[in-house]
Design a protein around this nucleic acid. Sequence first.
DNA 1: GTCACTCATGAAAGATATTTTCGGTTCGGC
DNA 2: GCCGAACCGAAAATATCTTTCATGAGTGAC
Lengths: 297, 297
Amino acid sequence: MKEIFGSPGGSLAAKVRTLAPSMTRSMQRVAEAVANDPAGCAALTVTGLAELTGTSEATVVRTARLLGYPGYRDLRLALAGLAAQQQSGRAPAITTDIAVDDPIADVVTKLAYEEQQTLADTAAGLDTVQLGAAVTALAGARRTDVYGIGASGLVAQDLTQKLLRIGLIAHAHSDPHLAVTNAVQLRSGDVAIAITHSGSTGDVIEPLRVAFEHGATTVAITGRPDSSVTQYADHVLTTSTSRESELRPAAMSSRTSQLLVVDCLFVGVAQRTYESAAPALAASYEALAHRHRSISR
Amino acid sequence: MKEIFGSPGGSLAAKVRTLAPSMTRSMQRVAEAVANDPAGCAALTVTGLAELTGTSEATVVRTARLLGYPGYRDLRLALAGLAAQQQSGRAPAITTDIAVDDPIADVVTKLAYEEQQTLADTAAGLDTVQLGAAVTALAGARRTDVYGIGASGLVAQDLTQKLLRIGLIAHAHSDPHLAVTNAVQLRSGDVAIAITHSGSTGDVIEPLRVAFEHGATTVAITGRPDSSVTQYADHVLTTSTSRESELRPAAMSSRTSQLLVVDCLFVGVAQRTYESAAPALAASYEALAHRHRSISR
DNA sequence: GTCACTCATGAAAGATATTTTCGGTTCGGC
DNA sequence: GCCGAACCGAAAATATCTTTCATGAGTGAC
């Protein structure tokens, strides 16, 4: 009932009130029903509404006319619109954390909302200068190594898959020893990327340090721009840290955040290397399409 | 500016995109018209819309059915509601695709926006009944196998990592042969999950089929609810399909969508098994914290 | 290339909903 | 009590929606 201000809902209720005196008793009953429950009435046919109000179809149509619509059909459409607005007007109010006894539908809503929030935060907090620098380095790199462990390891693989698709040479490492072994090979012109939410995952910092000391351009994707990993990073890309709850560990939002950063890197690189990236993308798409078709059906 | 959440048009536009592949040409024309101009179409009768799209009434009705409404009448009402919402919502809507010469800052904004859109669409289109059923199956499973290839493989691993964290037995398979070999071991009470955007990735369908035939409860996470993979799936969870562009391949949004679904599954299971999940989560957090502290500094 | 077959499609018949017509009814005035 | 005017709803008329069915285009098999 906060429809007071200029909304069509108010407009209709007001119209009903204004016109009520000039209505006959039967019409008033119809108008009242419509004003009280637009959504419900929108679901009814003329006959239905006539029965509900204990009147006839003719009366319903007459009422619709009086309210300014050509006929009941149009009133009904307007009602549907009204109902939808009222529906959406209700504040989502997703302030609370996910609780153990939340119904599954709420879980979906809350998770989606929180991840959207994370994305917005990340986009807002991302330093485009650093991002641009990282993109430039990647676009010109002889080879790229990406380090990530656990959930961040998957992000590392995601980035690697994408870069490979546009013809770049990239490797993801989740084994710390192999990572270091490979980092030794890096030199100026190569790129090393460390992905760690905490910024203090030793297994990821170590290879980045080695790469850094061998002259590679190093990038850190972390939620903690002041953490140890950044001291070996030429460019730091900050992911957002959202409040976590018991049922929604930080890993979830950091993953979302990291993926957005990684996507930005990828698209940035694809732009810079468009000449070679576009055909490569098309080619890999072709190859996949064939593979799908062949087995399906 | 509050369009971030469950964008009004989004739900229907998303449904159109999801179902478009399974539509015939004529139906696609109708669906497109409806998605592009809900308000305008709401003002038309079946005949009118049929003429506008150069098709017949029958086709319009068929399209309405496919979109989940009993008939055109109801679709029309829904359209009216949508139109009203859009009217009041006034979405800013970043319409343009990412271009080759977009500055990096725009890339960030657009990517974040599109992924938010994807999340909203996914949440809107997710069948909570199916989701609940899948959660129940997972919570009571002796063991769970997850199949995914390429980008979907990473999602499969993500799910597996999470389930392991709360003490469930889960494996991710990206090798088709090993997947089938393992699927043979599954039996009633076990769960098999296939993740594939296209729904026609043979390498993922095959192990699901085997699992299905051995009596396991099977779940498909796909963007094509009418594809081959669903015929072996007890429960189908639909991910959203957003329009793709050259620089933003479908894989990007499907991954976002799949991850949301996977997160929902995880949280759902964590709720059901809270007694054991909570300590397990805490324990794994403890273990990690230690690992971070020890090497960082 | 040809044949058989499936499936998409629209024309038209059929069903439903809406609008109009029209006659009965009520109510107030005389 | 009689008259007239407005109200009202039943039912006819119309518009709209839904279903059926025949046709033709496309597709795969031979």
